[in-house]
């Protein structure tokens, strides 16, 4: 089996506190993997280490067979890793369309002088980016928002655009940090559908942290549970839900006594 994303024995400590301890996860191509765990379990640290924003003290991470540990976040992004954040990260100074075009930064090459002199190659490239950005907005049904400023959208809308922006450059794996946080129940249902469509129509592998247990249970093929920086369970949603260790982590030791 060839994992598209492989985290091997990764440990991270901040000032002597272990945020992650010997965590290993293999993600298969096309999988949707949910990561859950109580607050402070190390979930966001795990995503940060994968995308290069934090460095592990120990261990290695492989993306599609290439070692990515120690590389800059922008380099890791260039190797096919997308990411969304807990708090919305649409750029407010740009329109929604420009936000999407920024997502194609790595798919475009016009340099400073080509841009300043607006060479024909540069104009062709801009037209191509624009068409691709519009198509990506169509995918989430947001084409009509193209010319709105990024921060004129509601929180939930920004979240969807942010996910679309993370997908636009066709990454191999996308890390989603609590995509459902702050969304209404109807929005969560739409998100559920969108995540399935991403996998089905684009074949992109998803790894997501999520606290909305109903969503993560419904949409994930596999769930990894972290507690105090350690992986305590890894399996299909049903087996994880019934795992005594998981119940203990969430509810305390007496719950299953």
């Amino acid at each position: 089996m060839s994992a598209i994303l492989s985290v091997q024995d990764v440990s991270v400590s901040f000032g002597g506190v272990d945020a992650l301890a010997d965590v290993s996860i293999d993600v298969e191509p096309g999988e949707i993997v949910g990561i859950i765990g109580p607050n402070g379990a190390g979930k966001t640290t795990l995503l940060n280490v994968i995308c290069g924003m934090a460095q592990p003290n120990k261990g290695a991470i492989w993306l599609n067979g290439t070692l990515i540990t120690g590389r800059k976040p922008s380099a890791v992004a260039g190797m096919g890793l997308g990411r969304t954040f807990q708090s919305s990260q649409l750029f407010p100074g740009m329109t929604v369309l420009e936000n999407m075009m920024t997502g194609l930064h790595l798919a475009s090459h016009a340099g400073l002088f080509q841009s300043a002199f607006r060479t024909s190659a540069m104009r062709r490239e801009e037209a191509r980016l624009r068409a691709k950005a519009e198509a990506a907005l169509d995918f989430v049904g947001f084409r009509h928002f193209a010319d709105r400023p990024g921060n004129a959208l509601s929180f939930g809308q920004q979240r969807i655009v942010e996910i679309a922006r993370a997908l636009i450059n066709e990454p191999k794996v996308v890390l989603l940090d609590e995509p459902a946080v702050g969304l209404s129940i109807n929005r969560v249902a739409e998100l559920d559908e969108l995540l399935r469509r991403i996998r089905k129509e684009k074949g992109i592998t998803l790894v997501m942290i999520e606290h909305v247990i109903r969503l993560v249970m419904a949409v994930s093929d596999r769930i990894v549970v972290l507690n105090s920086g350690r992986k305590i369970a890894d399996g299909n949603p049903v087996s994880v839900r019934d795992d005594p260790l998981v119940i203990e982590a969430y509810l305390g030791a007496q719950a299953h006594a």
Partner: peptide, 23 residues
């Protein structure tokens, strides 16, 4: 152009800009 977009992305959110591959 994409240079201006990279600048503004950096201004509006360094972390998100990096995640989009902006060095």
């Amino acid at each position: 152009s994409r240079i201006g977009r990279a600048f503004v992305a950096m201004r509006d959110g360094e972390i998100a800009a990096q995640a989009l591959g902006i060095d």
